[in-house]
Computed example of a mutant assay.
Amino acid sequence: MNKMPRVCIAGMGGMGGTFASILSSRPVMLSVVARGSTLQALRENGLVCQNGSEITRHSLRVNDRAPSEIQDLIILSGKSYQLPDLFKTVSHAVGPNTLIIPVLNGLPWWMIAQTNTARSVVKKITHTLDPEGNLGSIPTENIIGCVAYAFAQVTAPGKVNISGSPRFILGNALSGQNTVDRVLTWLEGGEGHFAETSDIKKEIWNKLSLNVATNFLSVLCEGTLKILSSNPDLCVLVRRCLVEIQVLGQDCGIGGLLPIDELMSKVEQGGNHPTSMLQDYLRNKPLELAAMGDVIIRLAHHHGLVLPTTEALVGLTRNKASRRY
C-alpha cells in the first residue's frame, strides 16, 4: 500500500490559504506553516475561506515550522522578500527527493540564470532576491515553477476570500525533468485547478508582464484592474509597459510569448479585483518593488534595453510608498 505523500505549505496568505483549502480534501498528509496572528487564528478557528456565498472551514495541522519528517512536496507561498525566511522554516524537512513549488509574484530567483544573461550579472541580480543564498541551495531539478491565476485576499488572520475558480499552471524549472505528473496526482481532484505546461518560463514571463504592467499603476491610481483596463489614458500606460516587458523577454531568449492584445484581454478579465501590490499598499505593508521592478530594470539594462514607462512607474510607486510612513 502506497503511503500518502507529505505536503507542507509554508506561508498562509491569500495564495497559501487557497492552496490549503484545495488540498485539505486531497489524500495527502497536509501541514502548514504560519506565524504571528495567523498561526494563532489557524490553531483556534481553523482556516476559513469564502468564495461567493459559500463558506468553508478547514482544520489544519499548523505550526511555525514544518514537521520533522522529510516532506515529499513543499509549497513556498509568500511575497518575494519573504521567501528566504520562509524556506528557513522548512529546510530541515527537505530531502534529496523533496519537490519545491515557489508561488510568488515577479521574477523567481531560479529563472534568472536561464535568461541569456552573463553569469556575473546573474549573481548580482539573484543576490537582490536571495541575499543569504538560502533559496539558491535548492537544486533546480527539484523546483516546479508555478503561475497562479487566482484572486485571493486575506480579510483577517486565518480568513481568505477567494473569487471564482483558482487556476495554477505547473512546469519543471529544469528542462528534461518530469516530476509534474507525479505532483498532479497529489494535487488535482477533478476540479481543473491545476494544469501542466512544457514551457513554464514562457508562462511565468507572460504573468510577469501582467504583474509589472498593472501592480505599480494600481498603487499610483489606487484603482482596480477594471479601472486600469477601462480608462483610456491608463490603458495606454498598461499597453506600453506590456510591450517593454515582452520585448525584454524575447531578448532573454523566451519564445512563444502572448501578443499584447491577449494580455490586455487578461487585464480586462480581472474585473474589480485589486492587485496584490495595491492590497499591500492599503495595509501599509512593504511592496514587492525588487522582484517586480528593480530586478527587471537591471536585467533590461544588462541587455542594452531601456524601459521608460516601467522605470517611471517603479520610481513613482517607490516615492508614493515612502510617504506612507
Rank of each mutant, 00 (worst) to 15 (best):
T56L: 10
I144T: 09
I101L: 14
E196Q: 15
R43F: 00
V33W: 05
P5L: 05
L282G: 02
K285F: 01
R182Y: 01
E262W: 04
R119Y: 02
V62T: 13
V147G: 04
I101E: 03
S37C: 01
K201V: 01
S265P: 00
R240C: 13
L129H: 09
R167A: 13
K79C: 04
K207G: 12
A41H: 04
K88T: 12
T128N: 11
K207S: 13
V212P: 04
V48A: 04
L99W: 03
L307I: 09
L289P: 00
L129N: 04
A93F: 11
T197P: 07
I112Y: 05
D261V: 10
A66C: 02
K320F: 05
G106N: 11
A173Y: 04
G255S: 15
I254N: 04
Q114H: 12
G11M: 13
L42Y: 12
C235W: 02
Q177F: 00
G171D: 11
W109P: 10
S59A: 13
L107G: 00
Q177H: 03
V94R: 14
N116L: 13
C146W: 08
G145W: 03
M15H: 01
R35I: 10
E141F: 06
I112L: 06
V32M: 08
S53H: 14
A213Q: 11
G145L: 09
I296K: 06
A291M: 10
S120M: 08
I22C: 08
E69F: 01
P5G: 13
T197C: 08
D130I: 12
R6H: 14
A148T: 14
I245C: 02
P166C: 07
A291F: 10
V183Q: 08
A321C: 07
L39D: 04
N63R: 11
M264S: 02
E44P: 00
H302M: 00
N97I: 00
R35W: 10
N272Y: 00
T185Q: 15
R61I: 05
A213Y: 08
A34F: 07
I70T: 15
R35N: 12
L228M: 09
M1A: 15
N319I: 14
N97M: 10
S80T: 11
S68P: 00
L299S: 03
G171C: 11
T155H: 02
L129K: 06
T126A: 09
V32T: 14
S137L: 12
L263A: 11
L248N: 04
Q50I: 09
P232E: 13
R57Q: 15
W109E: 11
I245H: 05
I162M: 10
L248W: 13
A150W: 01
K266A: 12
E69D: 15
A113V: 02
G256R: 14
V62D: 06
P108C: 08
T214Q: 01
I260N: 01
P108R: 07
F216C: 03
S209T: 14
V160I: 15
M264H: 01
P96H: 09
Q114Y: 00
A113Y: 00
L263R: 12
G249Q: 05
S230W: 02
M12R: 05
D72Q: 07
I143Y: 02
I227N: 03
E311M: 08
V314W: 12
W186T: 13
A152W: 01
G176V: 11
T115V: 01
V183R: 07
V180N: 04
P139H: 11
R57P: 00
L278D: 04
